[in-house]
Amino acid sequence: MGNVSLRISGTDRNMFTLDQAASTPSLTTSISASLINAATGYQLQVTYAPTSTGSHSAKITIYDANLKGSTTVNLLGEALEVPTLSRLTAYPASDITETSYKATWSEAPEVVDYYLLTRQRFVNGNMIEETMECDENYAIIDDFNGSENENYYVQSSRLGYLSEPSNIISISHSGINGISEDAPLSVESYPSTLRFRCGTTQTAGRIYDTTGRTVMLLPEISDGLEITLPYGIYFIVTAEHRTPVKLIAR
């Protein structure tokens, strides 16, 4: 039966390419007719790689292999601007019971696809991180009884991009432990990074683990200082903030 030839043409043809195993993506390709006519069918992959925003179009022409004439398939794609996403603010949990609580956060000022809530659950000394997509700026957590305590933070998502994580809220079964935005010293936890937030410079910082062992000394902590620690739970005290602040390295 021979081979079937495919060719991409049209105004925006260079933004579409044909992908075939073991070949370089291009505007043309040739496929065995026996593969296309297989009982399971044939999946043709087309890559859309726009070089500008807006709507783009092209077409695939299929010909040869004893076909009468040719067949055309239209290709359409739309490229949007990379979104600019604002950092959200997580609010203290409300309606806390032994089994549930309500997590809330600020609404995104721009258009978003959804909110991504990340829960950090502490169970038997281990941290379990779970995420959930939310259409509104709140979520009802109904399995709180499975955790000894929890943290949560939130991000917005648009076109596959995520905003910077919000501040972290801590909840225990006795109420809100809380890391609030106006605390003298707070810590934001990101993958591989801990970032300090403080209104004024802190001094004589000492970080220790859950056994009380000192793991790091920080002579001075300014707002925005970032450090890295091995995965685990730690605490920090400073000369200006003697109440321990929890750090979660992940």
Rank of each mutant, 00 (worst) to 15 (best):
A39E: 10
G41Y: 09
Y42T: 01
Q43K: 14
V46L: 07
V46Q: 04
T47S: 15
Y48V: 04
Y48C: 05
A49C: 01
A49H: 04
P50M: 01
T51E: 08
T53L: 10
G54E: 04
G54K: 03
G54N: 05
S55Y: 03
S55G: 01
I60A: 02
Y63N: 09
Y63I: 00
N66E: 11
L67D: 01
K68A: 07
G69V: 02
S70A: 11
S70H: 10
S70V: 03
V73G: 01
V73W: 04
N74D: 09
L75W: 05
E78W: 01
E78S: 14
E78H: 12
L80P: 00
L80E: 11
V82P: 09
V82G: 04
P83N: 08
R87W: 03
R87D: 02
L88R: 10
A90N: 07
Y91E: 08
Y91G: 05
P92W: 01
P92R: 02
S94K: 12
D95E: 14
D95A: 12
D95S: 13
I96G: 05
I96Q: 02
I96T: 04
T97N: 08
T97I: 03
E98S: 14
E98F: 12
E98K: 15
S100E: 12
Y101S: 06
T104R: 14
T104C: 08
W105C: 11
W105A: 13
W105P: 11
S106M: 08
S106I: 14
E107V: 09
P109N: 11
E110A: 10
V111E: 15
V111H: 13
V112T: 14
V112L: 08
Y114N: 15
Y114C: 13
Y114G: 08
Y114I: 09
Y115F: 08
Y115V: 03
Y115S: 10
L117M: 15
R119V: 13
Q120P: 00
R121G: 12
F122W: 14
F122A: 01
N124P: 00
G125I: 07
N126T: 03
N126I: 00
I128D: 03
E129P: 00
E129Y: 00
E129N: 08
E130F: 09
T131A: 03
M132S: 09
E133L: 02
E133Y: 00
C134K: 10
E136P: 00
N137G: 02
N137Q: 07
N137A: 12
N137K: 05
Y138H: 11
Y138F: 15
A139G: 05
A139T: 05
A139W: 07
I141E: 12
D142L: 06
D143N: 15
G146V: 07
S147F: 11
N149Y: 15
N149L: 10
N149R: 13
N149I: 04
Y152R: 02
Y153M: 10
Y153K: 13
Q155I: 00
Q155M: 14
S156Q: 14
S156A: 12
S156M: 09
S157R: 13
S157D: 01
S157A: 15
L159C: 03
L159K: 12
Y161C: 11
L162H: 09
L162K: 10
S163T: 06
S163V: 01
S163L: 04
E164D: 12
S166I: 06
S166T: 07
N167P: 08
N167Q: 02
I169S: 02
S170T: 13
S170P: 00
I171W: 01
I171V: 15
H173M: 01
S174N: 11
S174R: 11
G175K: 13
I176Q: 07
N177P: 00
N177V: 04
